[in-house]
Computed example of a mutant assay.
Amino acid sequence: MPHPYPYADYLADSIARQLTQLADHLSQMPADQVPQLLGRVLDPEDGVIGRFTGLLVAGSAFAKDHAERGALPPEVWLALGRAANELHDIGLDLDEHTDSLTAPTTPPVTRPAVASPLVVRRHR
């Protein structure tokens, strides 16, 4: 007899709960600890972004197999594949900045901190 609450359901719910707890914790952390945590979360291979991308890749493979057999519409496979590709690209974009998040920060010695203008650059 199957378990009334399968392990995969429990695992997905637990991960979702933990992500909510992490976000809540992040908002209450001292500012000097936030960059290191964000660097770990945003790591494109071992962080949450990388692991979630892997989950979408696995889901896309499952959907492809089922779409080829007619059990799922092909649009489901295409949407999952597109989501995995987009998230992978986002992870690569963020990877360019993880070093600056995880590097220890040292305040400038000779000049005071000056706010810099925010510039949005997007390149792929």
Rank of each mutant, 00 (worst) to 15 (best):
Ala71Thr: 04
Leu72Lys: 06
Pro74Gly: 11
Pro74Met: 11
Val76Met: 12
Val76Lys: 06
Trp77Arg: 09
Trp77Glu: 14
Leu78Ile: 08
Leu78Met: 05
Leu78Gln: 14
Leu78Pro: 01
Ala79Tyr: 03
Ala79Ile: 01
Ala79Thr: 06
Gly81Asn: 10
Gly81Leu: 00
Arg82Asp: 14
Arg82Gly: 13
Ala83Trp: 06
Ala83Phe: 04
Ala84Trp: 07
Asn85Met: 01
Leu87Trp: 09
His88Asp: 09
Asp89Val: 01
Asp89Phe: 03
Ile90Gln: 13
Ile90Pro: 09
Gly91Leu: 12
Leu92Tyr: 09
Leu92Ala: 15
Asp93Val: 15
Leu94Val: 12
Asp95Pro: 00
Glu96Ser: 04
Glu96His: 10
Glu96Val: 05
His97Pro: 01
His97Tyr: 05
Thr98Cys: 08
Thr98Tyr: 01
Asp99Ala: 09
Ser100Phe: 05
Ser100Asp: 10
Ser100Gly: 03
Leu101Glu: 07
Leu101Ser: 08
Leu101Val: 05
Thr102Val: 15
Thr102Arg: 15
Pro104Trp: 02
Thr105Glu: 00
Thr105Gln: 01
Thr105Lys: 05
Thr106Trp: 00
Thr106Pro: 00
Val109Phe: 01
Thr110His: 06
Thr110Leu: 12
Thr110Phe: 07
Arg111Thr: 09
Pro112Phe: 07
Ala113Ile: 12
Ala113Gly: 08
Ala113Thr: 06
Val114Met: 07
Val114Arg: 07
Val114Gly: 03
Val114Tyr: 02
Ala115Gly: 15
Ser116Asp: 06
Ser116Val: 08
Ser116Glu: 14
Pro117Ser: 11
Pro117Phe: 06
Pro117Thr: 13
